[in-house]
Simulated assay, not measured.
Amino acid sequence: MADPVFRTARAEDLDALVQLLADDALGATRECPSYPLPTSYNRAFAAIDADANNELIVAEQDGEIAGMLQLTYIPYLTYRGSWRALVEGVRVADSRRGQGLGRKLFEWAIERSRERGCRLIQLTTDKQRPDALRFYESLGFVASHEGLKRTLAN
């Protein structure tokens, strides 16, 4: 198996990315990987792609998209006006899990966040994903805060 290549997502990757997002029990309930994709995915991709403080990253391995995550860089007044990176939309293809790809993807994302001058990197994980929580803790992430979310009606 070849080493993964990490790169910025391209518009032609969108179908594969939505397939990755939908390829687990939680994602299957909230994503719509139909063809053609709902236009909302194209609008979201265009907004992410146009925003210098957002990077949608793919892990390409053996000629296919094997993983992904989104990094959002956020300026804060706290910590003396520092920046932080927010990690969202993390997925590794089911066939690639347990082979170290997720760890390599996160090591890349942590280094990229350092390059962007971030003081910290943060993420949330669904409480229904205890394996993901253990994985993030093995990377040095600490459950230091209680996170809350509220769904807004469209």
Rank of each mutant, 00 (worst) to 15 (best):
R134S: 12
R91F: 03
A59C: 01
P38L: 15
F141D: 02
G140T: 03
P4H: 03
F6P: 03
D3R: 09
R129S: 00
Q99N: 07
E31S: 11
K104M: 08
R116C: 02
I65F: 04
M1H: 09
R150V: 15
Y136K: 00
G140H: 09
A25C: 07
A143S: 15
D131R: 12
R10I: 05
L37K: 06
F141Q: 09
I65L: 11
T8A: 14
I57K: 06
D23R: 05
C118M: 11
N154S: 01
L123N: 11
C118W: 06
T8D: 13
N53K: 04
D23K: 06
G140W: 07
Q19P: 02
E64S: 11
L17T: 06
A25M: 12
L123E: 12
I110K: 00
A25N: 10
Q19L: 11
A50F: 09
E146V: 14
G102Q: 10
R116W: 05
Y79V: 12
R114F: 10
P38A: 15
A93N: 14
V87T: 03
R96P: 01
G117W: 12
G147F: 10
S144R: 13
D51C: 04
K127S: 15
G117I: 02
T39E: 13
S82W: 01
V142M: 12
T125L: 03
A109R: 06
L71F: 03
R114Q: 10
R134C: 06
Y41K: 04
A153V: 12
E115V: 01
I48L: 15
F106T: 01
P33S: 08
L37S: 09
G102A: 13
D3I: 05
G147S: 10
R43F: 10
R119K: 12
K104R: 15
R134A: 14
S113L: 06
K104W: 02
A52W: 06
V142G: 00
E88Y: 08
T78W: 03
D24H: 15
A52K: 12
L105S: 03
R43P: 00
W108K: 05
A44Q: 09
Y41D: 05
R103A: 09
A109Y: 07
L21T: 00
R116V: 05
G98D: 10
T151I: 13
R112H: 14
L37H: 07
N42S: 13
N42K: 12
E137S: 11
G102P: 06
T8R: 15
A28T: 04
L86K: 11
R96E: 04
P130R: 10
D13Y: 07
A9E: 08
E111F: 04
A132I: 01
M68E: 01
V18A: 11
L133P: 00
N54F: 11
F6D: 04
D62T: 07
A16C: 07
A47I: 10
